[in-house]
Nucleic acid binder design. Structure first.
Lengths: 195, 195
DNA sequence: TATTATAGCTAAAGCTTATTAGCCTGTCAA
DNA sequence: TTGACAGGCTAATAAGCTTTAGCTATAATA
């Protein structure tokens, strides 16, 4: 891991924790193990670090939501659908990098148009499109009732996104949040799955 | 409006726009029309202003979600339910004070436990409880199918909350967001209302 | 009327912050 | 071997920040 990458990594950690304005370049440097002025050998300034992080968030978005990996093997039963969906949600909740990006975006979403756009893609369009495809595939397999897949994907994901956001700010409720999410998914299956 | 109130008002406006750390006491003072040191005749410091704002957000929560005003006259038809729900949502979206509190909370939710708690109440529990009661009442009237009202309320409100958040950061999409919300509510009625 | 409190002001302290200038060392290529 | 460069360092600058001290005028009160 190069120093440049280490800077980005620690900067993201700190921005996620204390926000961009709440984080000093000195703090970042200290975590990296160098002195603040040395940062300027790698980046033009604090804002340059921010922009690099935005680029990374954008790339991460493509990588995670853009791939069609999740389509390779569609769930073939109600229980399998619930299981893989819960697995994906728990992964999203706990993966350190995704967590940091999520917290970072939530706090900085109003800083500029690009951040606003990425936040919407992460929070709405990304998950929505991903599940729309899965649900569409499962409709063709006769597992879901025929309906607008995009609309159903929204019904499924909106609550999950909100509950994950709650877990981010109040980790002490994680247990019950996870249960709420599973309850919601089961309810979703009750309503939209073919018996 | 006293100076103290004016300070709180302008502080909230600025915190909502640029965040707490992104706002200087000098800016607040300037908006109020006084010099920065004069602020200290009214508040012990910047953090004292923040705490007063948190108190206000808490009070505003009670006032808006705690009241049972919305229960006095329950909608008596599908179209009336859609109409009053859309009205309430549009009000929530546009009311300047509620908007500011929403933006403020979103950005500062990680600053301390109290802010995290209030954010959850505003974003989840408040709306959810309010609609749970409305839906429960309408179930008794035979308008909704019998089900768990809290669960249905979640299905209804989660998407609305997410879409309002999107409108906050990307007001240029307000038109389509409003349409999405109405579409979602109609879908909700299709699924859960008695014909 | 005398006095006291309120609420503004200027000046400035004192700290933090981002950034720059300039130096030093080790590495690698000519 | 020499020279260039990458990447670290210290010292310092310059600006910004919050907050305090102390002055003044007005309004309320005894």
């Amino acid at each position: 891991m190069t120093t440049k990458d280490k800077i980005l990594d620690e900067a993201l950690t700190l921005f996620a924790k204390n926000g961009y304005d709440g984080t000093g370049v000195e703090q970042i440097a200290e975590k990296v193990g160098i002195k603040a002025p040395s940062l300027y050998k790698h980046f033009k300034g604090k804002e340059d670090i921010l922009n690099a992080l935005i680029d990374n968030s954008e790339a991460r978005y493509e990588e995670y939501f853009g791939s069609e990996q999740h389509l390779r093997k569609l769930p073939e039963s109600r229980e399998e659908f619930i299981r893989v969906t819960m697995e994906r949600i728990l992964f999203t909740m706990h993966d350190p990098m995704i967590r940091k990006i999520r917290r970072f975006l939530v706090q900085e979403q109003f800083r500029n148009d690009r951040l606003a756009d990425i936040t919407t893609r992460h929070q709405l369009e990304g998950v929505q499109k991903m599940y729309a495809k899965i649900i569409e595939g499962m409709m063709e397999m006769g597992l879901f009732v025929k309906d607008n897949p995009a609309l159903l994907a929204n019904e499924l994901t909106a609550q999950v996104v909100l509950l994950i956001a709650k877990a981010d700010r109040q980790p002490q409720y994680e247990q019950e949040i996870t249960e709420s999410i599973e309850r919601h998914i089961r309810h979703f299956c009750d309503v939209y799955m073919r018996v």
